[in-house]
Design a protein around this nucleic acid. Structure first.
Lengths: 199, 199
DNA sequence: CGTGAGGTTGATCCAGGTCAAGTGAAGTGG
DNA sequence: CCACTTCACTTGACCTGGATCAACCTCACG
């Protein structure tokens, strides 16, 4: 793909976009670098805990990741693509930086609430809820690795596997093909049906 | 308590502080109002879901809540004090607004990771982890209502009650007094011992 | 063709959910 | 001052969803 400079919503010229494959590393905690805007796809963030990396957050198309580098000079979290995704460099717009940060903050808080909802309730609600979040509007997309789904929902790989199988059999979602990025789509992917984040 | 105007870290004069009791409402989603900085204590945020309010986030001393009003004009979440807390109005500093928003964003992302860690693992790790987060450095403080602890950790009230009892018996923490704001302190409250947020 | 990462499937077990019946303190109204 | 309610928490008995452990499959790739 040819290198391209983009005009994004903030009206500032950016560097070239970058494509990252499913499960691929975007940057590692501690490294130096700049912030990125996610153009398409979704990203998991992990932080280094004493017992190895622990899941720390989810970012999706439209979000900005790595903004903390403007403050600390290095990435706080490790970022990894869930399904394939496209990102572009993000720098502070000369004006209205505050306002754009405010929007970022609001999006992050919203995401936080969504993620909490993905961590209680039955296994099928959690997995369905995540898929709804990732591919809103019944779009067909590549399934993240089971490992990632498990980390995000707080379930085990085995349970995720069984749950996906059950949802498929019930016709709640359609799994086309197998492993390494199965495409998925179907009824479950309308947020209304799932994502019932009770307390 | 007399009304007082404060000079906060951003160097901007604010309105009078406000004290909120354990379990008391700070503001309700949809209401109009301004942002607040939490001077002491901690706050739970809830959002209105189809099946009633669902836990959506946690904010602690130093954090700013309700910043989304600068964007939307109204509160997105309902805020409620966990244990007693003190808050003060927060407005945008004339300069360096972007940087202070950046810090806010970083704090929110950090909190998000902390909260996720509170939602898997054994019940005692979760409850202990939350208490560690709320009263770092072994400080003695009032216990939030069991209802709140349960919502945050994704457990049931019954399990939280049993877990607190067990932690008390093991001498991991000290529960002084009963109901309506028991004071708590002890070994568990050093983050090192708990908060082992594995995936 | 061998290796390994990613996924599947089965059997077993137990932590925590659920249901149900308490208690005790604080408030309320007569 | 005392019945009555309510809120916050407690305790017990039972049951189940998902964790755990273990074996296995299958594709991609060097």
């Amino acid at each position: 793909m040819m290198q391209q400079s983009q005009q994004n919503t903030d009206g500032v010229v950016r560097g070239p976009r970058r494509e990252v494959g499913r499960g691929e590393l975007i940057y590692h905690a501690g490294e130096q670098g700049h912030a990125w805007r996610i153009v398409a796809g979704s990203v998991r963030l992990d932080r280094d805990e004493s017992e190895g990396p622990a899941f720390a957050g989810l970012s999706m198309a439209g979000d900005v990741i790595g903004a903390e580098t403007m403050l600390f000079g290095a990435y706080t979290y490790t970022a990894q693509a869930l399904s394939g995704c496209v990102i572009e460099p993000w720098g502070e717009p000369t004006e209205r930086f505050g306002e754009s940060m405010l929007r970022l903050l609001a999006a992050t808080e919203r995401r936080m609430a969504d993620m909490l909802a993905l961590r209680n309730g039955r296994a099928d609600e959690r997995v369905g809820g995540l898929l709804a979040l990732l591919g809103s509007a019944g779009a067909v997309f590549k399934l993240p690795r089971l490992r990632d789904i498990a980390d995000i929902t707080g379930l085990t790989i085995e349970t995720v596997s069984r749950t996906l199988h059950a949802l498929d059999e019930d016709g709640v979602l359609d799994v086309e093909g197998r492993r390494q990025g199965r495409r998925i789509g179907g009824a479950a992917l309308t947020p209304a049906r799932t994502l019932r984040g009770r307390c």
